[in-house]
Amino acid sequence: MKFIEVKDLKIEFTRIDENGREVPGKVALDGISLDIEKGSFVAVVGMNGSGKSTLAKCFNGLLAPSAGRVVVGGFDTAEEEHIWDVRRRVGMVFQNPDNQIVSSIVEDDVAFGPENLGIEPKEIRRRVDDALKRVGMYELKDKGAHMLSGGQKQRIAIAGAIAMRPECIVFDEPTAMLDPKGRASVMSIIRDLNAEGITCILITHFMSEAEQADRVIVLKKGKVLCDRTPEALFSDREMIEKAGLEMPPAIEIRDKAGLPEHLTTADDIADYIAKK
């Protein structure tokens, strides 16, 4: 079942010229069409400036299309009266762990979203406790947000999204500013959420993260360059180079050692060598 439908989406930013008039500026997205299946785990990759973050902001109506349509769970994001229906269904986690936490105390920040939805205080409490437990931060609920590490802050941001009970969460480079430990903890939470049925859209620069998705969408200069499974993408060296990306280490080793192409993971390679 489709959860998000994107049709001929165009985003054009305007700028103010010397005479103070609004004129067309940069085209960030140029005719994007794609569907996101309910419950899937989709990675979006591409170079800086390829339009990844702009696309992320279209999934929950933070940006309205200049042309084309984005429909989320049956609601068109361009329709003002449904914007809250869209945002309630699609949560978002941003790159900078510091700049998305509103309240000084952990649990108060997680409560921010549900409070905006006008939910009963008792129900908010239940949701906040539940969300904090799911990201493993329940013990720190009374702590000051500024005392936490980057990885912990990012888990709070995820809890803030979970507490709104969304059907989908868009992660916009959530691990870019984290150390390996923080990065691993965020990725494992994303996998758990997806296993529980939440649709996950992950924007990332790390191929090792994109590899974990069911499907990878590659953007270049505001257009979809390709849209396939990670296995299919990483067996296409030409495409990887064209998109300015890189191969996961296992595939690099496979190709440099002259191993057969059907081996796609480190496990495959190890099994193949063990059998020789």
Partner: peptide, 25 residues
């Protein structure tokens, strides 16, 4: 990491590789 994984499955394989090229070699 990959070299270690291979070692576990193919005990006579030995490698001290740090880079992709060394591992492939």
């Amino acid at each position: 990491e990959i070299a270690e994984l291979i070692k576990r499955k193919a005990p006579d394989f030995s490698s001290k590789a740090l880079t992709i090229d060394e591992a492939a070699g």
